[in-house]
Amino acid sequence: MNINKNIAISESGFLFNPSTGDSFSTNPIGKEIITLIKEEQTLQQIVNQIHLKYAVDQDTFEKDLADFLYILKINHILKEDE
């Protein structure tokens, strides 16, 4: 699992995919997750970190994370491991 190499992400959460021309905006926690993926953190590590930092129970976050990753995938931002 990794973020497509050529995707640029700005401080404000603006994403641009030069290979498709699509642009996106994400919220601060979305940007944080994308950064963690770029740093090659595992899913479990991401869940742990977010759970420590934010007032959210683990089940809720896991559900939201799965949904978020799905949207990254269908928009060709996230690549599954071969």
């Binding site: 996106f24 919220n27 601060p28 979305g30 997750i33 930092k53 934010y54 978020f68 949207i71």
Partner: peptide, 15 residues
């Protein structure tokens, strides 16, 4: 104290 949570979202911008 933990920060308040908002679920992660990403929206495609339509130009």
């Amino acid at each position: 104290e933990k920060l308040s949570y908002e679920r992660p979202i990403i929206n495609k911008l339509n130009t």
